[in-house]
Amino acid sequence: MIVKVENLQKSFSGKFVLNGVSFDVKEGEMFALIGPNGAGKTTTLRCLYGDLTPNGGKIELFGKAFSSKSKERIAVMNEERETFRRLTGGDYVKMWSLLYPKWNDKIFSNFALHYKFDLEQRVETYSIGMKTVFYVALTVASNADVLILDEPTQHLDPLIRNEILKVISNYTLEEKKTIIISSHEIYELEEISTSFAIIKEGKVLYSDTVDDAKASHRLISRDEKASQGEVIGLVGDDTLVKTDKDVGRFPKFEEIVLGYLGGRREFIPF
């Protein structure tokens, strides 16, 4: 395991935000942390790279307990796209190349040319979409063994979003690196992620590989009996069940996510 999280707990002012989060990430995986806003995704990621100190639980990176030494092998894109106020694009490149021993200038130059980064300009003045692409460029060029990307496609137009998804997907497939991605864009995650954890209210509801999750769940219509499996939740007019029996139909990835997140509650406003 390249990342192992066990029973992670974190509270702010006595209010628990993470309540026993556990998952494993293998080398070369694109692992997606999926959940609604406020589920605890960002808090989990911040614990992973040492920004927050957990109240309990265990984090192992590269087979060892978390240490500052392991941070050189992790590159992070934070959710808010916060930047240093006065640093230009060029200053950022210099800083990252100093901090990451395997920094690859050629990769960054390719990004800079393609997306026309102005390296003389202060990064703070970039548009939010440009900041996102700039951070993706930095993290990929860092050549780090693990990338932690918090909502990496937020604020991007559809064309660039598609390109960025392809870039980060290739980072795992061709470079054999690991990516942990947090998102609530469940429709795009099926294309790129190999494994995932669904998180809600600070707890992991379900964690698996995408293929195994699809194989072990079925969508059945509400008329059908679900006696031979565990009822997970409602997805539109159907019910998601966890079973190895050949009933109903195989669900899509997003249907599995919606089933777990929605549970058995139904919203009928009229």
Partner: peptide, 15 residues
Amino acid sequence: GKIKLMVSLPFSKGD
């Protein structure tokens, strides 16, 4: 609250 940026880079709090 600006320290978050440094800690997201390969700096520990001790560094």
